[in-house]
Design a protein around this nucleic acid. Structure first.
Lengths: 337, 337
DNA sequence: GTGAAAGCGCTAACAG
DNA sequence: CTGTTAGCGCTTTCAC
């Protein structure tokens, strides 16, 4: 049976559809008895106003969209996103909003964006100029970029270049010269931003450190790695098999670093004695594992909270174009000496 | 500036709105040149069909709703939900759906449900008869219950009674008689199901074990606890302050158990020598912490996947009423002797 | 190959 | 205090 509509209720209660609408939205405008009668009928017939129709008329639906160029399955497996979502979620909680998490549909983020019943977007890991993001700019929908470059839109980033520099500098300072870098791996379909954004900024930081310490930069020691524990473990094992003999490793995320730790253990490599490892993010498990992971801490939750707040502000017409950059700091634990 | 509508595009391209619609949805019905012209204009003006209007007409929006009676902030901080969402997410990935996570709005889940632009719901931790869920049954919207009782709706649960029995029995078998239970704490507004659902089933399991081993059941040793590390730590510390001297503890979740571990360490209590602890869930960190947590493993991801699949099936008219119960098993690690 | 018109379910002027 | 009416933006028969 099809859902009851406002007209069904109106007919059943012997009133006009308007009256039913009022009963739900501005009960004060109806007599108490009418409201009660209408609500009773509605409850009886299991009626609820259709959120789509309502949203269509109202011009908003009370949902924020979170867009990430990865499968949902991967997003929810990643503590970085869990923490980011906590930040965004805290804003949603305050404003009675829902959070819709979206990933590419049929390999197209643009498609996912086009179909999303939301009031605005938070986009992670893509630049404003990205071809799948561009349409949003022309369309009037508010969005904020997290971990990506933006010149017009609002954005929230952390100090990637500086913190990457600090991590690399620390290792070089200790005398390391065989430093392997397990960097982010961008899927081909998103390749147009490989030279920008978070990955690029961190790379610049690494390169600046190498230059500063007079150490030769070798592209062959810069390996794109899938951003998971599994990915880190595999990439590191493969590197060993290929003959790499690093004395230190920098990774694009803690998840990757955790994979390195695991693979190292399996191969009998002592950490930090044989190999020093520095991760990135400082996700909660970083300090729980043993040895505890040295890493770069970025304020992920804060990132989410700020992104959420900027978006909510934009939704209510506040059209500033803030570009927030949060500080990040090197945390030395037990995977460095 | 307001967003461009289908009419704007039609006017600009010198065609009817119908033609524009066709250009997007059934390009075959238009001449190639017309389609191109329309699409060009659309791209130019940054036009995208409004998902709400489209959903209103089509009768679906491509979004699954996940309803949990907790704040979003808490949901995303909880590895149980992260894993559950991985399961649901894998189904969404396959079917090109988005996942909308919702929590109570103005303290009302019903309100959140009413406003959600989704095709169906997955409801966690509430029974079918719950007053905030009941309206869904009358309304024609498909939903599946996870971790809750259902007689009419579909549901996915794990073997709570049996696994709780196993955990308690293990401790009693070892000779423990001072067993503290840190159970789920249900917010007042959801009190109407405190005697049902997951919490109740586990309690029955505990009680059956106590009876079986001839150990007296004391309600005062059954303490509702907020389901977080913090909650577990506080509740345990408080219990100690109140004079409880347990030799073993059963907790409703690993998060709570982690809190117990932390508080125990602060007070110099040796685990497992002074105190044995068994958690519940087997979230990923459970085996990473030290000492590694003994716990009851339930297949959380599988739970999510099955719930997602049941819902997707229901969406396409498959109106079975499955009640799935997954196995759970006791995993003994280092917090038990 | 293209357009007119009706309607999805709801809200909000505007009358009465 | 209540109802009439006109859309919100889109899709979709059904004609032309």
């Amino acid at each position: 049976m099809p859902r009851a509509t406002i007209n069904d209720i109106a007919r059943q209660a012997g009133v006009s559809p308007t009256a039913v609408s009022f009963a739900f939205n501005s009960p004060a405008r109806l007599s108490t008895t009418t409201v009660e009668r209408i609500l009773a009928v509605a409850r009886d017939m299991g009626y609820m106003p259709n959120p789509l129709s309502r949203g269509l008329v109202a011009g908003h639906v009370g949902v924020l969209g979170l867009i990430v160029p990865q499968a949902l399955r991967e997003i929810f497996a990643n503590p970085f996103f869990a923490t980011l979502q906590q930040g965004i979620g805290s804003v949603c909680d305050e404003h009675n909003l829902g959070l819709l998490t979206l990933s590419p549909q049929n390999n197209s983020l643009e498609l996912a964006i086009a179909r999303a019943p939301v009031d605005g977007f938070i986009i992670v890991g893509l630049n404003e100029q990205h071809h799948e993001v561009l349409p949003l700019r022309k369309r009037g929908i508010p969005f904020v970029i997290v971990d990506g470059d933006a010149e017009i839109a609002q954005s929230v980033n952390s100090a990637d270049e500086e913190s990457a520099y600090a991590a690399a500098a620390h290792l070089l300072e200790q005398g390391h010269r065989e430093v392997l870098i397990l960097a982010f791996d961008m899927p081909h379909r998103h390749l147009d931003n490989i030279f920008y954004g978070v990955g690029a900024r961190r790379t610049w930081g690494y390169q600046r450190a190498f230059a500063n310490y007079g150490v030769e930069w070798r592209d062959s020691w810069f390996l794109p790695t899938q951003g998971s524990v599994e990915g880190g473990a595999q990439r590191f094992a493969q590197a060993l098999d290929e003959g790499y003999r690093p004395t230190a490793i920098l990774t694009a995320s803690d998840l990757i670093a955790l994979g390195v730790l695991r693979a190292a253990r399996q191969r009998g490599i002592q950490i930090p004695n044989d190999l020093e490892v520095i991760g990135y993010d400082d996700i909660p498990v970083a300090e729980l594992v043993s040895p505890a992971l040295s890493t770069v801490r970025q304020p992920i939750m804060e990132k989410g909270r700020i992104a959420g707040e900027l978006l909510v502000a934009a939704l209510s017409g506040d059209t500033g174009a803030e570009r927030v950059v949060l500080a990040a700091e090197l945390i030395l634990r037990e995977t460095t000496r």
